[in-house]
Nucleic acid binder design. Sequence first.
RNA 1: UCCUCUGUAGCUCAGCGGUAGAGCGGGUGGCUGUUAACCACUAGGUCGUUGGUUCGAAUCCAACCGGAGGAGCCA
Length: 455
Amino acid sequence: MSRILISEIRNAEECPGDVLVKGWVRTRRDAKAFSFIELNDGSCVGNLQVVADATIPGYEDSVLPLRTGASVEIEGKVVASQGGGQKWEIQASAVRLVGNAEEDFPLQKKGHSMEFLRSIAHLRPRANLFGAVFRVRSRMAYAVHQFFQEKAFVYVHTPIITASDCEGAGEMFRVTTLDGKELDSGAEDFFGKPTYLTVSGQLEGETFACALSNIYTFGPTFRAENSHTSRHASEFWMIEPEMAFCDLDQDMSLAEEMVKYLVADALENCAEDLGFFNRFVDKGLVERLEFVRERDFARVSYTEAVELLISSGEKFEYPVEYGLNLQSEHERYLTETHFKCPVTVYNYPREIKPFYMRKNDDEKTVAAMDLLVPGIGEIVGGSQREERLDILRANLKEHDLDEKDYQWYVDLRRYGSVPHAGFGLGFERLLMFVTGVGNIRDVIPFPRVPGWAEF
RNA sequence: UCCUCUGUAGCUCAGCGGUAGAGCGGGUGGCUGUUAACCACUAGGUCGUUGGUUCGAAUCCAACCGGAGGAGCCA
């Protein structure tokens, strides 16, 4: 008999009959003449209730010693459950104990703190919440590819080790074989120059967009900032589409369409897991996701956003003033209080944005955009790129960057330059938004944050 | 890097100046178509570390270490 997944049994309309199931014991309850075993194999949140009669072979050796966490194989017949709480249960004909769990198995049948579960990241996928999170993570990764592939975007693998310490982006992790010696010049190092883990595949992505038209990257990204918040990790995954012959407006539309698509996909394909989050993590989750799927996102220019914040009468800790960055509290006010829906803010002052963003005709702003969602803040950041050679060169100079270091990037503007645009979407931030989980460390299998790189 | 909170049994926490407690988990026994099952008994802790105040410190003070939240930066 071949193994059947518990999800298949739980979802069955018709009785599946005789089956073989394999999984891990969540709990056992003994009656006088039989035991109940709650079995989970990770295929869904729900457990399968197994009734093991004391007369079946191996009852003493394989059922009575079972502790929470043990792995078992069970053969039996699926029958309608006599008890409430589940449609089907299994009347076992044979139970084989594959590997018992030692007495100190740390996952109990009770609520644990997220902090404790992080410390046992090798076992936490066996907890309901994390099983659900990582099933959704898998599904969302699939949906990301589906979204772009349906639009004929080309998936590009940009390098993870890079020599461009550029962009004024965050701190980078140095990649070296020198072990502490001669780090600064890098001349003696493996690549003959200093190299780092990538903070973004954007610049490389642009080169491919300027050949294949529409591309996307989806891979790991590394930031060495010493940031301690629930929204930052040192290693995370980012999705970065880049489109040739594309302006900011089309860029924003794609970002909005993508967020809606992913939310809709989760609602459609992860309903049970989302239901679990809705019960135990965030009571308003499903309603909010449905809202996001149905309604248009708001769009305001940075200038309008600043005016709106000033005239709101709201007391902010940090000042709102044209030319200053929007603070977290300002972004949250916009998306959570004022619009009560996702908001795209666009056309930011040049001074607060990087060299590669396209200067607008007003000479004061650049064609940048941030997509803000309630509860998380910025989930997408993007821009139309500066495609005009002379202006890009001037920008490099203004930002005190050496054109030599960006020669290949500048080249794109010399040979068949085109207007192009793209954005970065933080995969984990999307997952936080979709699952309602409040800490980025709990949507990454083995999170890396300052001071923590276990497992 | 800065600000705030926090560190007591395997887990979740109470105790907040006078010789360490509960629930859950573990072990043993009982009961029951049970479902975070229930009942009884039992084992388990140099109260984060170091120093100080005190007759006496888990409790007060200081430093350090760990954890969490927020800010900045960003995704």
